[in-house]
């Protein structure tokens, strides 16, 4: 069993997002991190490796700076690092998914772990889309995956509650935030990771045909500013405010 984990580098969730010239101003973002849900996927991927998976391949798709995700993954146990380099600021789902599926296929991984959505685009298309293209099963909103004698079982948040499922055959798991504690790399891990080679490839190296774009970004904008609100002091003002909620805002 070979495990791939898909890691996306996004602005840290504490970052302010500014817009300049109808595009998000990336130059103002000082801290980039692995997308939070992908971190849970990485944690589970390491656990799978510890319980006997043959290899853990970390894959990222993005500009040069994104290679930092891979080094971080290596520091906690990823065996092989693949960076598909692109400078494109926007790609449609068809393109992203065919590139990632092709990279997974080339690395011969039958288990794929990723976040349920990225913290920048908030979409959640990649996991199920990649599974569909590869012909794998897909289990979403997972908080934990474990392997027992070649069988994979997972805990997922289903429509009726938390449930344990079993899956047969190759599968993509998309991760939600779970109870699992994320491990931090130790010094030795960090030193080893610095030496680990990153296989840096271009989209053209994947040998797939990329069609013309099917979706394009027209603009980014900031959410509308709100006028300053009304301020009240003390719990005695609750009655007035409740009246305003009814008569002014008409929301109750």
């Amino acid at each position: 069993m070979r495990v791939a984990v898909l890691l996306k580098q996004v602005p840290d969730t504490t970052a302010k997002i500014g817009v300049s010239g109808s595009r998000v101003d990336e130059s103002a973002i000082t801290k980039w991190s692995i997308s939070p849900y992908d971190e849970y996927a990485l944690e589970s991927a390491i656990a799978l490796k510890e319980s006997g998976a043959d290899e853990l391949v970390a894959i990222t798709f993005g500009p040069q700076r994104a290679s930092k995700c891979l080094t971080e993954a290596a520091a906690v146990g990823a065996d092989r690092l693949i960076h598909i380099v692109t400078d494109a600021d926007f790609m449609d789902s068809c393109t992203v998914q065919s590139i990632l599926s092709s990279a997974i296929e080339r690395s011969e991984c039958d288990i794929v772990l990723c976040g349920k959505q990225a913290a920048d685009t908030n979409s959640g298309s990649t996991g199920p889309g990649v599974a569909s293209l590869l012909g794998y099963s897909c289990v979403g909103s997972v908080t934990e995956v474990s392997m027992d004698g070649g069988k994979l079982s997972a805990t997922r948040l289903g429509a009726t509650g938390l449930e344990r499922i079993e899956v047969s055959g190759p599968c993509v798991f998309t991760f939600d935030k779970g109870e699992v504690e994320l491990r931090r790399p130790n010094v030795r891990g960090i030193m080893m990771a610095k030496k680990k080679p990153i296989e840096s490839i271009g989209i053209e190296d994947l040998g797939i045909e990329i069609g013309s774009p099917r979706a394009s970004l027209k603009s980014h904008s900031s959410p509308p500013e709100k006028p300053p609100g009304q301020r009240f002091e003390g719990a005695g003002s609750i009655e007035i405010v409740v009246g305003k909620l009814r008569d002014e805002a008409n929301v109750i």
């Binding site: 789902s93 068809c94 908030n122 979409s123 199920p128 569909s132």
Partner: peptide
């Protein structure tokens, strides 16, 4: 979201969530 994404990939459609 999973349905729209899986259906789109199977039909070769782009998806926006």
């Amino acid at each position: 979201r999973e349905m729209s994404s899986a259906i789109a990939a199977k039909k070769g459609f782009p998806v926006v969530q």
